[in-house]
Structure formats: C-alpha cells, structure tokens
Design a protein around this nucleic acid. Structure first.
Lengths: 128, 128
DNA sequence: GCCGTGTTTGACTTTTACGTCAAAGTCAAC
DNA sequence: GTTGACTTTGACGTAAAAGTCAAACACGGC
C-alpha cells in the first residue's frame, strides 16, 4: 500500500501536462516527495491536485488557491487574522453566488438557443 | 429619450476601464455609434456590455463571447451548421453544469471554513 | 482665452498560466 | 549495451486580456 503516482500517471488522469504540475510545485501549491530527483506523488498529493483543478475551473487564480491551501494547512490563531479571514471568506462566497447565478442564467439562455435550433431544424426537415 | 451613455458613465457603472470597452470594440463585440470621433453608447450597447461581462465572469473567452453574439445576431440557416451549433451548445452546457457543481462544492467548503473560524473565535473570546 | 474634464488613437508593457524545446539523467527490457 | 519510455532542470516563448502612457482633439464654464 501507500501507493505512489508518477507524474505522467497524474497528467493522464487529469488531462494536464507535466509542465502544469511542475508549475504548481514551483508556485508552492504541491510538494511531492522525491526519490533522487524524480517526483513521487502520494494519494494526498493527488487529492490536492484535484482540488487545485477545481479551483482553477471556477476561476481562482494561483494566488487565491495558494491562500486557501495555506489556510487549511495552517489556520490563523490570532483574532484579527481570524476576523480578516472571515471577511475574505464572505467576499468569496458572494462572488461565487454571483457566478452561480450567472451560470444559471446562461444555462437557461442556452436552453432557449437549443430549442430555437431544434424548431428551425424541424422546419427545414419538414420543408424538404 | 433614446438616451446615449458616455464611455465613462459605463465604465463607472460597471467598474471597468475605458481601455476595456475600447478593447471590446476592437474585438468586434460592440459597435457604439459615433458623433465625430466620440463613442456614443445606446441602451442596447449597455445591455450587450452587461452580457459580455456576465460571460467574462463565468470564464468565457472573448472568442466564445463573440461567437455567442454572432449566433444571436445572425443565426445559422443551414442544417449542418445548426447541428454543429446544437452540439457546441450541449458541450457548453455540460461545462457549465460542472462549473456549477464545482461552485456548490466550494461554497459548502467555505461554510465549513467560516464555521471553524467562528468556533475558534468563540474559544478565544471565552478564554480571554 | 484658457481650465478642467472627458475623449481619442496608437504604441508599448504587463500579468497569468502555462507551452515548447534542449540537453541530460534513469531505468527496465530486449 | 543500446533502445525506448520516462523524467529532470532551465531557458525562452506565447496567448489572452487588458494596463499604462503620450500626444492631441472637444467643449462647457468662468
């Protein structure tokens, strides 16, 4: 047990390049082990990469992702820091709620587009 | 009636720069009128800008936004084009559904973070 | 008549998130 | 013992989406 993943295993699984993983390491997002110079990824690394990619999909920057990881790794103990964090979390949530609404609006718009397409297709199909 | 908006009016309303609007015009997303060299934005332009910004928020590229605008302005009449469009719409929808899920997952994670913060704050508050 | 504010074009710069390529090391397999 | 698959670092390149800056035009108010 205690499996290791190679870098290409993960790039294949997630559809990313080795450059991307190297970049994430350079940026301090992940810290795979090494055997010699070769990177060895543990399940925890793999899981973290998954979360990084999720963050990426919803538009977080590398800096934001790093910050989130930081909070998990080493939550602030001081009161001012905590209050600041709460404020920033609240802002992010507002942001995400807006984005969710944007997505829902766009989804219904796409519904309409598709319907219009299908109607038009039916017309053409009948006409010919 | 038939109001015109100045460029700064719109940049202020939407929190963007004039450069951004000029950029969108260069990219063919908007086509404000002119009085001499000065751009005059009509309500329809303003509305379109709103939609462009919504597209931007959910991660559409300029090219994608342009394509969407194009479809609205001049929907395809040919069958193959229509079928292609339907396929692309379906892909986009899948993409957006994934994004929505990502957002929802992240929102609940943020709930947890905030709760942890509040708990921690309460502990500190009681302890001192 | 000039001041402040707004606007224009054009050119150059910046940031983010990687892509691409070169040169070299590792290691199992044949 | 060399081929082939994989990996490393380092350096340079790139695409998207603006930011920044300069020089000049527009115009209402005082």
């Amino acid at each position: 047990m205690n499996k290791y993943y190679s870098i290409t295993e993960l790039t294949r699984e997630f559809g990313i390049s080795t450059r991307t993983l190297r970049f994430y390491e350079d940026e301090g997002l992940i810290h795979p082990e090494r055997r010699g110079r070769t990177r060895l990824f543990r399940p925890a690394d793999r899981h973290l990469i998954k979360e990084i990619l999720r963050g990426r999909r919803i538009g977080f920057t590398i800096a934001e992702i790093r910050e989130i990881i930081q909070v998990y790794k080493d939550p602030p103990g001081e009161m001012g820091q905590l209050q600041l964090l709460i404020k920033r979390v609240e802002e992010k949530r507002e942001d995400l709620r807006q984005k969710r609404k944007d997505i829902e609006d766009t989804l219904s718009e796409l519904d309409n587009v598709e319907e219009a397409c299908l109607t038009r297709l039916a017309e053409i199909g009948v006409g010919t």
